[in-house]
Write a protein that binds this DNA or RNA. Structure first.
Lengths: 132, 132
DNA sequence: TGTTGACCTTATAGTCACTATAAGGTGTTA
DNA sequence: TAACACCTTATAGTGACTATAAGGTCAACA
């Protein structure tokens, strides 16, 4: 399979596949005589794993850690659990931050009723006052 | 006031102030004979406005738009309201995305009980399976 | 035979909002 | 004279791609 076919199959850009290869996330593929990359089943599976991780918002560095685990199937999986717990905590903190922001924005939004001159706009005034 | 004093007062790095100047967000300051930047009250106020916007997660491009409004105080403020509404919508969609992710991660986390070999780890298996 | 077209290759730069580093000039104090 | 804190500019790095350029490969069609 060439890079374009793999890309279409997995729903990514060919550039992204080359990028993952350069980053060491995908094993270097064999080449045809003309230099074209050729991919097999294993590449597809590895790419699927990477894309699954990316959908979970895991960073490339975290994916690398998980790949090390995958290559050592007889080791204990505690590191994987820890990595996921840390990630869950990070997502929760992102949500908390955004919810606080949402609250602030709602308050700010109420400072204006859409139909004033800029000089009287409560939103602009509210921003200028700073955080509180 | 020199750049270091302004930076300490506003709680930012001097580099950030120079960066905002380069980006056209802060007016170019006067210079002393030795080339040092000097800042007055207006610069402080403009920087405060920028930092207020950044705390709200507004992009530099959005800040530029708001600055244009600020310079035209007799225009109607509808554009400001619209900008804020769009931003609120974006924050809400980010929250929704993260909450869906949180749900997914919670399900995934339950697939393993912390004390297995990598080969039996439900988390790793769950990621490999892809989105569903 | 020529040429179109879809595909592949590498290399480089851009995104965003900074942050870090390097290499050097200025000005006050010891 | 030297140490020190401060200032200057220029350049590169962050993360995960995305876009662009300039060119090579190969099958099909006129």
């Amino acid at each position: 399979m060439r890079i374009g076919q793999l890309a279409r199959k997995m729903g990514v850009d060919t550039q992204t596949i080359r990028f993952y290869e350069k980053e060491g996330l995908l094993p270097t593929p064999d080449r045809q005589k003309n230099g074209y990359r050729t991919y097999g089943k294993k590449h597809g599976e590895e790419l699927a794993f990477i894309l699954g991780c990316r959908l979970l918002n895991l960073s490339l560095s975290e994916i690398r850690q998980l790949q090390v685990c995958r290559k050592n199937p007889h080791q204990p999986c505690a590191a994987i659990n820890t990595l996921l717990d840390d990630h869950i905590a990070r997502v929760q903190s992102q949500i908390a931050t955004l919810e606080a922001l949402q609250q602030q924005l709602a308050v700010l939004r109420k400072q204006c009723d859409d139909d004033r001159a800029v000089a009287e706009c409560g939103i602009l005034a509210g921003i200028g006052e700073g955080p509180r």
